[in-house]
Amino acid sequence: MRVDLDYAVRVLPTLLRGAVTTLQATLGGMALALVLGLAFVLLLRSQNKWVSRPTRAVLEFVRGTPLLIQLFFLFYVLPEWGIRLGALGTGIFALGLHYSTYIAEVYRAGIESVPKGQWEASTALSFSRVDTWRRVVLPQAVITVLPMLGNYLVAMFKDTPLLATITVIEMLGAGLSAAASSYRYFEVFTLIGLIFLAMSLPAGALVRWLEAFNKRYA
């Protein structure tokens, strides 16, 4: 087998355009997961059993089923219910929903790591519940769990090729259609792997930096 470097150079722009979509899906999915995860953890911590128990059930259900099945379900069933998000929108929604259930647990760990004295000081200063969460508890909880959130960001990034299965032209989708006509699978998939690696290495470094930052901070 000969490696066709010329082809590799020619197909690179196509793959990079796909990489932009990959990034969009990752960042969009992560933003959604961060917000949904917060909503889930607040519902989970509700004093009301009729709120916290169904929330726990939903989280178990989403965590207990494969992301790929969720993607297919949302992609084919949501339009039947009149909800049209488009392929990328559906992908972002599925990634965000799936990962939010893990991120809710990360937040929970972070919230529980905030010492009781912080809540007591907030009471003593007569903070409202909202201010106690917003100004005292969540900032500390999030700083503690930033490295874990970073790990989930990398994990989600590496899950984005699944979106190719619902017709999103991200990196894998772009590569598959290029390889389908050129039969240059080696060049295409090697390049895709290298681009993934090039993007996840800095993210990994960021996570390690956050861990070091936290150690210094604590």
């Binding site: 004295g117 912080q118 007591e120 200063l125 007569s126 903070f127 100004r135 500390q140 700083i143 901070y217």
Partner: peptide, 21 residues
């Protein structure tokens, strides 16, 4: 145990409640 807010400066610790509450 003091229970200061570790993510705020000394001054912010003192001013947060007067501003919020």
């Amino acid at each position: 145990q003091f229970n200061l807010f570790p993510h705020m400066s000394a001054l912010q610790n003192v001013t947060e409640a007067p501003i919020r509450v």
